[in-house]
């Protein structure tokens, strides 16, 4: 029971982190109709910028400034890069973002080197807030939960309760009509791209100390973010939240479980082979839940695409 509670909290932390990454991406994706392959790279930039700033001015300054720099960089890339490529169609856009992801990784390695950076949680949060059983829950994890929830509420408020939010929502669904009504849609696109990348930056700033700040960090998280928005439904904030939490808990519980596939085989009345190497089912006999944990979200995505192609909360399909 203790372990269940602890895993629940760990899964929540990881899920909310995924949410911060996917919230921006889902808006960008539904708006431009193009996967932004470089989205996780902005997450990495956030972590590295914050690390650099924190060595001079401390963690909190980094938390404030790094996402701003990432957001401005993102908006600039949309304005002077993506917008120009946009007129040539979706494929060049796709290739552009793909190239951008590779470029950012190389640039990061060029300036910060290939080894992991000593980016650490702020000292004021380096204590165990409480313990469940023998497992301590670090104060920083609780801090991560609060930051992510605050960002979710702020986004929800802006998107549903303000005039800006209404224009964005309208531009997501009917860009031509909104433009005809006299709104500057390219400006809206740039703004959303900037805010989306800044959100990825925030995720990088607060995840960097926990998940590690190294050149492979974007690659590790990159594909799972796409899975999240496809499961959640394009352009849906609630969907992104739901899918993120689902994936967070799913991977956490899978990694924490001690379930073995041998149990199923034994239950089916099969006998454990004496010589494992000679058995045709040896892979199944030795397989455990933690080993297949990382592919569960992808299996869920395939399942969702089959039964509900527009995602859990999405209003339109791919």
């Amino acid at each position: 029971m203790d372990l269940f509670l602890v895993n629940l909290i760990d899964g929540l932390v990881y899920g909310l982190l995924l949410f911060m990454l996917s919230a921006g991406l889902t808006l960008i994706f539904s708006m431009m109709g193009v996967l932004n392959f470089a989205h996780a790279s902005f997450y990495m930039l956030g972590a590295y910028f914050a690390y650099q700033i924190s060595t001079y001015l401390g963690f909190w300054t980094g938390l404030l400034i790094a996402p701003l720099i990432v957001g401005v960089a993102g908006a600039g890339i949309e304005r002077y890069g993506l917008r120009r490529v946009h007129q040539f169609g979706h494929v060049p856009e796709l290739i552009f973002t793909f190239g951008l992801a590779l470029l950012i990784e190389e640039v990061v390695q060029f300036f910060w080197g290939k080894s992991q950076k000593a980016y650490d949680t702020p000292e004021i949060l380096q204590f165990a807030l409480f313990s469940i059983g023998n497992n301590s829950i670090a104060a920083y994890k609780v801090f991560m939960i609060f930051v992510s929830i605050a960002i979710f509420l702020a986004l929800l408020y802006v998107l549903t309760r303000t005039r800006v939010g209404m224009i964005i929502q309208a531009a997501l669904s009917y860009p031509k009509t909104v433009e005809a009504l006299g709104h500057n849609v390219p400006m809206v696109f740039m703004g959303v791209f900037g805010v989306g990348t800044a959100l990825a930056g925030v995720a990088g700033v607060i995840a960097g100390p926990v998940l590690g700040t190294f050149p492979g960090m974007a690659f590790v998280l990159g594909s799972i973010v796409f899975v999240t928005i496809v499961i959640g439904g394009l352009g849906s904030l609630w969907g992104a939240l739901l899918a993120s939490l689902l994936i967070g808990w799913m991977t956490t519980f899978a990694a924490a479980s001690s379930f073995q596939f041998a149990d199923i085989l034994l239950f089916l009345g099969m006998e454990r082979p004496a010589d494992m190497a000679a058995s045709k089912l040896r892979d199944l006999w030795t397989l455990t839940m933690p080993q297949i944990g990382p592919i569960l979200p992808y299996m869920l995505m395939v399942f969702i695409l089959v039964v509900r192609p527009h995602g859990l909360m999405g209003k339109r399909g791919l």
Partner: peptide, 23 residues
């Protein structure tokens, strides 16, 4: 006695919890 996927684990916390829980 456990193996995790090589270079694919994003968050090692659940593994750590299991280690603590095992005493």
């Amino acid at each position: 006695n456990e193996l995790h996927p090589l270079g694919k684990v994003k968050d090692f916390t659940p593994y750590a919890r299991k280690i603590i829980a095992s005493g």
